[in-house]
Amino acid sequence: MNSKLASRSIIVITLLFLIGPFGIIILAGLSAGDFMTFPPDGISLKWYAKVFEVKSFRASFALSMFLAIGGTIAALLLGIPAAYAISRYKIPFAETIKTIVAAPIIVPGIIVGLALLRYLVVPLNFTVTIALFLAHTALVLPYAVRVVSSSLNNLRSDMEEAAVLLGCSRVGAFIRVVLPNIRSGVLAAFILGFVTSFNQVPVSLFLSGPGVRTLPIDMLSYMEMTYDPSVAALSALLAFLSVAIVFIAEKFLGFSRYV
């Protein structure tokens, strides 16, 4: 009927606005010409191939992967115990602790990068890579705590008491009973953390040095110098990667309820 048609069109137009540009990027990257144009001048895969040849892209991809995986694991190692303590104990200063841990969400990334550069890297001789690692860990930590907490809150705490009464130690109860039941929350936290960290730009703006650049920063500086479609091709590839991860996560975890 009429209202149904109207409602469908609103959804389609919105989705077109949100997702359409990616279609254009994918096509622009397929161009056979040397400049970004749309529609593309002929079709070729040469720019997609070039992405893999650019050395700096490879190095920065590796750094971004390291930060995303390592930083997220570190954040989970810090965040899971914190989330557990917040949901299961009446700890003193609970509100303060929660505020501190959540603060990185409010503090703009560019400031974090600058602050770490001025007060960790320069005076304390931290390497840029370590500073980046610390910054990414702190940035992912609030998400890790939030997602794991919501998983824990859905889990009744008397299960742990039951496990203890059946002979488990407290740590044992956590490993045998809690962990298996928050597994999907932890995985979701990992994926959310990975994606957040991998796509993070502002933190790394100041925190980059010779040979130490995250992928998005590398793409930005590449764009400033050249206007060829390889960045479009790379963007398209990254988009595919994200889509694949999210698709799989949604399929197995119902990821969207954690976002």
């Binding site: 914190a82 104990y89 700890i91 200063f93 602790i97 603060a103 974090v112 602050a115 770490l116 610390l134």
Partner: peptide, 27 residues
């Protein structure tokens, strides 16, 4: 046992406080 809980939550808070908030505060 709240001390045990504090012990679990503190690493995260100290980490963020020391390596994140403190430098930002200086800035």
């Amino acid at each position: 046992n709240n001390r045990e809980g504090l012990f679990l939550a503190l690493p995260a808070a100290v980490f963020t406080g020391l390596l994140f908030l403190l430098p930002v505060g200086f800035l």
